[in-house]
């Protein structure tokens, strides 16, 4: 018990400076204690969720939030819940429409095709939205799509401008404090995009002396800054920062940069628009997309999770993947880590 208390004290002490390194250290410590004191562990002590921490060490760099759980494993189970106030309110709307915030510029995800005369949006995210609407309101087209900027995803939910956001949105610990997420519906991570003939092979030494483009305020830029001189050579030029990840493709095509680092899913979307570029190497981080909703709308979260379970089960997910993402994400029959739907772990 003493050892366990010590672990807890250490953990709270380290939480103050909350870095990943600290968490990793705590994980190692907790693992050590778990191995040393199997009895204490198996007794199922509830304090601090040490059990989940121990579980976390199996994955190489899996992020854990303050409560000890991975961000994508904190959604509500579809089975629970009684009253459905939020769902009822949506159903009671005059036009019986679900209002969803989407992206309309992400090729193959949420995209307005100028050659589609109907003006209907299309893509992997859009398919999911139609499915959610079908399960919720009985009509896949009972949706009002709203194009929202990346940095307005959270405010739009908080200000009730939209019921949910389905917009290549990564589930992170920070965001969990602002919005509620569904179970993860897509596994992705950061990835490198470069011309096919380039000598760059991935997020590694081959980036030496190369100019790399990333979007302002993106996870990619954070990673590049942190890894410069570590995972990637110090000679990598990461000064090219643009407002939107798609602007990186412009720079790549104009030859102003040698590579782009962005979300694998978005990198695939870029590769789909230019046959001369491709994804290089695998995902070098682990991230999961989720449907974001307002905090406290538990019944809607459970409803969406139910849809996700069915969507995976009945092959709808796989069909959509095959249609929009398979051509650029899977190379030479080598399945991408994104090709299988992520397993749901509820709170």
């Amino acid at each position: 018990m003493d050892a366990h208390r010590l672990a807890r004290r250490l953990r709270t002490g380290l939480r103050g400076w909350g870095g990943v390194g600290a968490m990793a250290a705590v994980c190692a410590l907790a693992l050590a204690f778990a191995l040393l004191l199997p009895h204490t562990q198996s007794s199922g002590a509830p304090a601090g969720g040490a059990g989940r921490l121990a579980h976390g060490t199996q994955a190489r760099a899996e992020t854990k939030c303050d409560n000890g759980a991975a961000p994508q494993d904190q959604s509500l189970s579809p089975s629970g819940g009684g009253a459905t106030p939020v769902v009822d309110r949506i159903k009671a709307r005059e036009d019986r429409r679900l209002i969803v915030g989407v992206d309309t510029n992400s090729y193959r995800w949420g995209y307005l095709n100028p050659n589609n005369a109907s003006g209907a949006l299309e893509g992997f995210d859009i398919d999911l939205v139609h499915r959610i609407a079908k399960d919720l309101l009985g009509d896949p087209n009972a949706v009002s799509f709203k194009a929202i900027p990346t940095n307005q995803r959270i405010p739009a939910i908080q200000n009730d401008q939209v019921d949910m956001v389905v917009r290549t949105m990564t589930i992170t610990c920070d965001r969990l404090g602002d919005v509620a997420f569904s179970a993860p519906y897509f596994r992705t991570g950061q990835q490198v995009l470069a011309p096919k003939k380039s000598t760059i092979t991935g997020y590694n030494d081959t980036l030496a002396g190369k100019k790399v483009c990333s979007a302002e305020g993106s996870t990619a830029l954070d990673n590049l800054k942190a890894d410069k001189g570590g995972k990637i050579p110090a000679s990598t030029d990461i000064r090219t920062v643009v407002p939107n990840q798609l602007d990186c493709l412009v720079k790549l095509q104009l030859g102003e940069v040698d590579a782009v680092v962005t979300d694998g899913a978005l990198a695939a979307s870029q590769a789909a628009q230019d046959p001369t570029v491709e994804l290089k190497g695998g995902l070098f981080t682990d991230e999961y997309y989720g449907v974001a909703m307002k905090r406290g709308s538990d019944d809607l979260v459970r409803q969406v999770n139910r849809t996700l379970e069915n969507y995976v089960k009945d092959g709808g997910w796989a069909d959509s993947y095959q249609k929009w993402l398979h051509p650029t994400m899977d190379q030479d029959d080598k399945k991408s880590a994104s090709a299988t739907p992520p397993a749901a772990h509820y709170k």
Partner: peptide, 12 residues
């Protein structure tokens, strides 16, 4: 790009 339906056209 726009004619081919690629949104990178809007970035251009």
């Amino acid at each position: 790009n726009n004619r081919q339906g690629y949104p990178v056209g809007s970035a251009y």
